[in-house]
Amino acid sequence: QNEKLANELKSLLDELNVNELATGSLNTYYKRTIKISGQKAMYALKSKDFKKMSEAKYQLQKIYNEIDEA
């Protein structure tokens, strides 16, 4: 289960640069939040902690959705 979550989180991290570029014309909230979420996700992957990875995955998905809707 950890392996599956780690792969999903890696996949979301692969999209980080594209989504970060998409924040160029948006409010600074999005820029700041996506950077923080990305850092948390990288830390969670290194720690291999299921709870941290779950939270990081949720945060990344949430900010990606917010950027898409903005």
Rank of each mutant, 00 (worst) to 15 (best):
K62H: 05
E69N: 10
K57H: 06
L60D: 00
E69Q: 14
L5Y: 02
N7Y: 13
A41Q: 00
K40V: 09
K52F: 05
Y64G: 02
I63L: 08
L5M: 05
K52S: 07
Y30T: 03
L45Q: 03
S37M: 15
Q61F: 04
L12G: 00
K35R: 11
E8N: 02
A22N: 07
S37A: 15
E8A: 06
Q39P: 01
S37F: 12
S54V: 12
L5I: 07
K51D: 07
T28S: 12
G24M: 14
I34S: 00
N7P: 02
A6S: 05
L45C: 04
I63E: 00
E8K: 04
G38T: 12
S54R: 10
L60H: 00
T28F: 13
K48F: 09
S25A: 10
S47R: 05
A44N: 00
K46G: 06
K51R: 09
K10M: 08
S54N: 08
E8W: 04
K62V: 04
Y58W: 10
E20I: 15
K52P: 01
T33Y: 11
K35W: 12
S25T: 10
F50C: 07
G38I: 15
Y29H: 05
K57L: 15
K48Q: 10
K4N: 09
E20R: 10
Q59H: 07
M42S: 05
S11R: 13
L5R: 01
E66Y: 06
I67M: 04
Y29S: 04
E69R: 12
T28E: 15
E66V: 03
E8R: 02
N65G: 06
M42L: 13
L60A: 01
L60Y: 02
S11V: 10
L45G: 00
K40G: 03
A70S: 05
V18R: 14
S47A: 07
N17E: 14
M42A: 08
K40C: 12
E3V: 06
T23N: 06
L13P: 00
T23H: 06
S54E: 13
L60E: 00
K46E: 12
G38D: 00
E15A: 12
E15I: 13
N2M: 14
K46C: 12
M42W: 11
L45M: 04
N19G: 04
K31D: 02
Y30K: 02
Y58N: 09
E66C: 11
S25W: 09
K52H: 05
L5T: 02
A22R: 15
L13S: 00
N65W: 12
K35E: 09
K57Q: 04
K31I: 06
K51G: 08
I67P: 01
K40N: 10
A44F: 02
L5K: 01
K40Q: 09
Q61S: 05
L9Y: 01
K52V: 05
A56K: 02
L13V: 03
E3C: 11
E55P: 02
S11I: 12
K52A: 11
L5Q: 02
Y30G: 01
K51Y: 08
K51T: 10
S37W: 15
I36N: 05
L21W: 08
Y30I: 05
R32H: 14
K10C: 08
K46Y: 07
K57N: 03
K4Q: 11
E3F: 08
Q59A: 13
E8V: 04
E55T: 06
M53C: 05
N19Y: 15
N7A: 14
I67G: 01
K52W: 05
F50T: 08
E15C: 14
R32D: 11
T28P: 14
K31E: 05
G24V: 12
S37K: 08
M53Y: 02
E55K: 07
K46H: 08
K46T: 08
E8F: 03
